[in-house]
Amino acid sequence: MILLVDKDPISADSIAYYLEAAGYQVETMFDAHHGLERAAALDPELVLMEVILSGGNGLALAQAFKSDPRTCRLPILMVSVLAAEERAKKTGAAAFLLKPVDRQQLLSVVSAARNAGGRSS
């Protein structure tokens, strides 16, 4: 299962549509509140996260994921409208995609991250 954290339901819908059409199961969160606890409880195989989150910053949340033993192994892909590739990589994100995302690029990055994380569909 892929956890998608995005502030914007329309943008999240598009990304979820691409992923579900490719056979992935997607859970969506629309804000940063209690993000860590919810992610730990869901135990996803991959997290796709926007930098601009309602009530917070995706970069800070990604760092929190990397610092927590329950989520530190989770591959994180940052997907944002904000050009923040370098800062995303510094948080330990496996990849960064600038919105609006290219479908093929999204699927290939997701597949690569899952393979690197030891799971595949």
Binding site: D8, I10, S11, V51, L53, V81, L82, A84, K99
Partner: peptide, 23 residues
């Protein structure tokens, strides 16, 4: 205007500070 578009176009201006966003 969708928020994504507002942020996307704002980044083209010199006053925009990416590190300030959501901080």
């Amino acid at each position: 205007e969708p928020l994504d578009k507002i942020v996307r176009y704002a980044q083209g201006f010199e006053f925009f500070l990416p590190e300030a966003v959501q901080d």
